[in-house]
Structures are given as structure tokens and as C-alpha cells.
């Protein structure tokens, strides 16, 4: 059973479209496996929509000039296009890492992904999202593998997509959304192997040198 969920603040940011794509994708993938959070997000979206559209436009519009938009012209331009948006088919996508097949959830199917690189039992592909200090990866750990102890200055999110792993704090299953801050340390290890989606806020401005010396592998991985 999934025991680790995104907090309310994150879900709210997701609903508002304010999170980085990496985190929103992680929440979407979690919600695919977690009906409870999916329902919360649906409710929040409904509420947010009401809040957004209930106010009359007369309020708080000091700086906006609606007259700058030629309404009739815009409507005519939009409706002159008779075509409708056809849906892209939801084609299942799999990836094979070290002989193991994994399903790629829809939320990241079109994310640009780099090459797979291996460090011992750990294989990683970076997602090319260009989100500053935030690094996003797919991380596969082969059976019997573990990630060396590491910390981050910012946050570190691990979303378990397939398989299972455990650390000092417990055992995790697919869908678990494990958010750690810089104060926590952990050493994930897996018996049967797993695939994770990881998002880490490097924020390595002043600890980078020391981190690198103490823990070169950790900073390479996430």
C-alpha cells in the first residue's frame, strides 16, 4: 500500500500550475496509482476554478486594459478555424534498462530524456527539463543494489515507479512519493530492483566542494 503522499502545499501548487514540470509530473504519476490524492486534486481543481471565475471582472482590474483586445476580431479569428483537436492516442511506452522492461507513465512520455549511464548497479538517465538547480532523472537500481548515503541542500524527491526498495525508514512500494529535505539522510537499497523518478534541488552553491569530496557518487546520481 502507498504510504507516502505529496503534502497539501504541493498538491495545491500542482492544481495551480505553479510547480516545476518535474514535480507536477511526479504528482501526476503518483495520482495515477493513488485514488485518494487524485480525488483531492480533483476537488481542489474544482474549488480553484470556482474561485477564479466567480469574481466579476470589474474587481481588481486597475492595470488591465480589456479594451486593448478586439473581442469581435479575436472571436472571428478563433471560430474561422473549423478543425477540432484530435486526441493523441495513449500508446503504452516501455523502456528496457539492463534487460529489464519498465512501463513509462504517461506524464513523462514526451519529456526529453538523455542517455542511460551506469554506475555499478545504478543506471540513470537525466530528463532534459532545464529547470535550473532542479535535476530530474529516471533511476534504475539493479537487484541487490543500493544508493550510497547522501544528502542534499534542498529537497530530494523519489517517486517509486516499479519494484520496491527500503531504507532506514521503511519499505516502499510503487507510487510512494518520498520527499526528503536536506536534514535527512538515507541509503536506499533494493532486493529485487526498482525504477524511480527522482527530482533533486541541487542548490549546491556553497556546499558543492565539500559534498563532492565527501560523497562524489551521491552528487552524481541524483
Amino acid at each position: 500500500m502507498i504510504k507516502h503522499h505529496p503534502n497539501t502545499e504541493l498538491l495545491s501548487g500542482h492544481v495551480n500550475g505553479q510547480l516545476p514540470a518535474s514535480l507536477s509530473a511526479a504528482i501526476a504519476m503518483h495520482n495515477e496509482l493513488c485514488p485518494q490524492c487524485a480525488r483531492t486534486v480533483n476537488n481542489m481543481t474544482e474549488e480553484q476554478a470556482e474561485l477564479s471565475f466567480e469574481q466579476s471582472p470589474g474587481e481588481a482590474t486597475n492595470d488591465i486594459d480589456f479594451n486593448a483586445i478586439d473581442i469581435e476580431q479575436m472571436i472571428a479569428a478563433i471560430t474561422s478555424d473549423e478543425s477540432i483537436e484530435l486526441l493523441a492516442e495513449d500508446v503504452p511506452m516501455t523502456v528496457t534498462v539492463k534487460g529489464q522492461d519498465y512501463k513509462i507513465p504517461r506524464a513523462i512520455q514526451h519529456m526529453p530524456m538523455g542517455k542511460w549511464n551506469s554506475f555499478g548497479k545504478i543506471t540513470r538517465a537525466r530528463m532534459d527539463l532545464n529547470e535550473g538547480d532542479i535535476h530530474t532523472s529516471l533511476l534504475q537500481i539493479a537487484p541487490g543494489g543500493s544508493v550510497p548515503e547522501h544528502t542534499h541542500k534542498g529537497f530530494e524527491l523519489t517517486l517509486l515507479l516499479q519494484g520496491s526498495f527500503k531504507d532506514e525508514m521503511g519499505t516502499y512500494v510503487a507510487g510512494d512519493f518520498i520527499m526528503l529535505d536536506g536534514e535527512h539522510q538515507h541509503t536506499p537499497e533494493t532486493t529485487d530492483g526498482c525504477l524511480c523518478f527522482t527530482v533533486a534541488d541541487g542548490a549546491q552553491h556553497f556546499t558543492q566542494g565539500i559534498n563532492k569530496l565527501l560523497n562524489p557518487i551521491g552528487s552524481l546520481i541524483y
Binding site: E9, S12, N16, Q18, P20, Q48, F155, D201
Partner: peptide, 11 residues
Amino acid sequence: TENPLKTLPIH
């Protein structure tokens, strides 16, 4: 560069 987790309004 701001940490996105710190500045979200909650409704």
C-alpha cells in the same frame, strides 16, 4: 531560482 516549494499560496 527560488525554491518553488516555499512560495505557494494554499487555498
